[in-house]
Structure formats: structure tokens, C-alpha cells
Design a protein around this nucleic acid. Structure first.
Lengths: 209, 209
DNA sequence: AAAAATAATTCAAACGTTTGTTTTAATTCA
DNA sequence: TGAATTAAAACAAACGTTTGAATTATTTTT
């Protein structure tokens, strides 16, 4: 799936608009205006609004996990360390593509069965397999509990990250962090989330507590 | 805010449609057809589609926390027990109003500042205050850690519940629970979530681990 | 290297639908 | 009778998409 510079410009502009106003809430005319292109250009380059959405998913959802996978399947790294690397990586990846993930959250709630929904499911399966590998390794080394609900673990991880992403203004206010610069606050959130999730995972995976 | 039976019928029908297809993805004509009412009836009873959405929020978002509040502010109950009661209650309340919460999740992601957004924020403030009370009590009794990020705790709680709600088919498949009846699976999810979140909260709040 | 031919892209305009809402008359209920 | 509700029809505006001519880029031919 290759895209030209112009197409990528449309993709990323549409991504921002879809994230802010929703798919149905964004008109093709808005996308055209925001990209300084003609209305017909979107149909010309992508065929339809629906296909543009699919293109965004093809553009974003690939290659997300390959870097993590190589990190994680490396020998000589303890399962605990691998979990930590995974958490760091997931948080960074999601933060980098915040708009896309906002779209994905909204999309996964809808009762649809289209290409986009299938792409989301495939992505989830990959995540499960990845975490399962690490958990299995930890169990083999008697470091982790025997019974671990891996899907539930992922649900807490992704759910916490997404909820933070979607309510970050509220978190900022509740913790009186309004004085922080935007960028500094983003860094702060990531750090807090990473520490938090690592603690949680250790509790669930090891036999402590 | 009082509603007639007919209005409630419209509210609940629209709620289901908004949850399944999104606000912009649902037409007023669809709501009319689904309720077996005339198109103009929606405008007549609520004024506009936007106001109908606001009415759904007014209908649902109230009274959600009053029952919890009375449970929680009771004397003679340990802070740990109160946390458990809170978790049980939140999970049950959200499960009861799944459609509404699906709408709320989608709504809170949008970059809007309307009445609905303000209602969501107010609801969050109430939740924080409630949990803060319990945490404070636990800290006074030297049961909980001194430093607790209450907002982060709520984010994990709500985030986990929402993520489970939105990906429950996936969870079911990943844990090979397809043989369970729908109702039994719902019960299963709730039980698992309750145990899971209680464990997490105890870890974060107490000085273990 | 210049010219001609072909392909790719941009543009304004218009297409037919669907949208949320309003109107006006008919009907129901108190 | 008079107010509340329902019904069918119409409204203008916005929607996604298509059209066909104009323009630009690329390739082919001379």
C-alpha cells in the first residue's frame, strides 16, 4: 500500500478531522478545504469517503508492532524487562498516533462489520499473541503466575491508555497541572502511565500480593 | 427533568441507535421509524436532534451516583470494603446502561464544548470527589499509601470497564468462551472485572508490593 | 532536443439524495 | 370548545459523488 505525498497530506488532514469531529461529522468538503484541494480531488485519489477511511487504517495500522516484536523476541532479556519494554513501546506508539487511535476507539464501538472493523480485530490478535509469548516465557521460567488472563491484561493496558488520552484535560485539572506547558504535560502523562502500568502488570503477573 | 412515557420510548430508542451507529450516523427519520412515530414527533417532543441527545444525557446521567454515595459514606464500613462496594457498583451501573456509556465514550473523544460535554465533566468531578473521600479515610486510618493518584485510579477503573465493554466479543473469543450463553457471558465478564479491579486497587492503595 | 501524443490531475459546476426542521391541516383528548 | 398531539407534505441546506472540460506531467515519436 503506497501513497504519494499528496495522498498522505489528505490522509493526515482527514485523520485529524475525523478524530475531532467523527467520520459522519466531517464532510468531504471540509477535508478539501483544509487540504486546499478541490472537492473532487478526494474522490479522485481515494474513490470515496469510506475508502479514504480505509486508507487511513491501512496507512496507520501497519508496522505498528514490528519494532516491538523484534524487541520482545530478543534472547537474553528477562520476561519482566520485556513486559516493561512492551508497555513503554505501546504508550509511545499510541501517543505518536493519538488522532488515529481516537478514530479507532470511536470505530470499535460501532456495531459494524466492515473492512475497518476487521483490521482492528487483526491488530488485536497480533497484540494478544505478542503478550502471550512473553507471558508464556515468564511462566516457563517460574517467574509469572500459572493462570494469567492475558486478554484482560491487554484490556487494562489499552483501556487505561485510551481513557487517559480521552480525558487528559480532566486529569490535568484534577491534579492541578495547568501550569505545565502542553508538551511537558504530555511527557508527564507518559511517564506516569508507564510507571503505573508496570506496577499493575507486575502485580498481576507475579505471585506478589 | 420529567419525561412522559412516549418521550422515554423515544429516548431509549434513540439511545440504542446512537450507540450502534453514532449520533451523526443516525437520522431523525430512522428514530421515527423505529419508534413507529411520525417524523415530526421528535421535533415536537424535543425540539431538535441535538436537544434529543441532551435529553438522553439528562435522563441517564442523573441519579447514577446517589446510591453509591449513600453506600460509601456509611460509617462502620472499612475503606477497603468501601472501595470494593464502589467497584461493584460502578461495574453494575455501567453494565446496566451500556448503550448510554457507548454514546458517552464516543462523545468525550470529540473536541466539543457543548452542554453534553459539560455534563460529562460534571459527572467526572463527582466520581473523583467520591473516590477521594474514601481514599482520604483510608489514609487517615493508615491503611492506604500517603500518595495516591486518585484520578489515575479512576482512569484505570473506567478505562478497563469501557475497553472490556467495547471489545467483549474479542475477549470472549480470545478466552474461548463462545459456548457460553450471552447472558451467562455478561455475568462472567462482570465477575472477572470486579475481581480484577479489586486486586488492582488494593495493590495501588495499600503498601503491599 | 523539440514536438506531438498520451496520461494524470485539477477545477467549477451540477447531479440526485438525504439531511434536520417547519408548516399546515387533521385528529385526538380533556 | 380548546389545547395537545399526530400526519403528510414541503423546505432549504448539506451531503457524497460524478461530469466533462481545462490544465499539467509524463512519455513517445520525430
Amino acid at each position: 500500500m503506497e501513497f504519494t505525498d499528496k495522498q498522505i497530506h489528505i490522509l493526515e488532514t482527514a485523520e485529524k478531522l475525523f478524530a475531532d469531529k467523527g467520520f459522519e461529522g466531517t464532510s468531504v468538503r471540509e477535508i478539501a478545504k483544509e487540504t486546499n484541494m478541490n472537492l473532487a480531488a478526494i474522490s479522485y485519489h481515494f474513490g470515496s469517503k469510506e475508502k479514504l477511511m480505509e486508507a487511513i487504517f491501512n496507512y496507520r495500522i501497519n508496522n505498528t508492532w514490528f519494532a516491538v516484536k523484534s524487541l520482545v523476541s530478543g534472547k537474553g532479556i528477562s520476561p519482566v524487562k520485556k513486559i516493561e519494554l512492551l508497555i513503554d513501546s505501546v504508550i509511545d506508539k499510541i501517543s505518536e498516533k493519538e488522532c488515529f487511535h481516537r478514530i479507532m476507539v470511536r470505530q470499535q464501538i460501532l456495531a459494524k462489520d466492515d473492512l475497518v472493523s476487521r483490521l482492528i480485530t487483526e491488530s488485536r490478535v497480533r497484540n494478544i499473541q505478542l503478550l502471550n509469548e512473553i507471558v508464556q516465557e515468564g511462566q516457563d521460567q517460574k517467574l509469572f503466575k500459572k493462570k494469567v488472563d492475558t486478554p484482560l491484561l491487554i484490556i487494562t493496558m489499552i483501556g487505561t491508555i485510551y481513557q487517559m488520552m480521552n480525558t487528559q484535560d480532566f486529569y490535568r485539572q484534577a491534579n492541578k497541572l495547568e501550569s505545565l506547558e502542553d508538551a511537558a504535560f504530555q511527557v508527564h502523562i507518559r511517564r506516569v502511565l508507564k510507571i503505573h502500568l508496570k506496577t499493575l502488570f507486575k502485580t498481576i503477573l507475579t505471585n506478589e500480593a
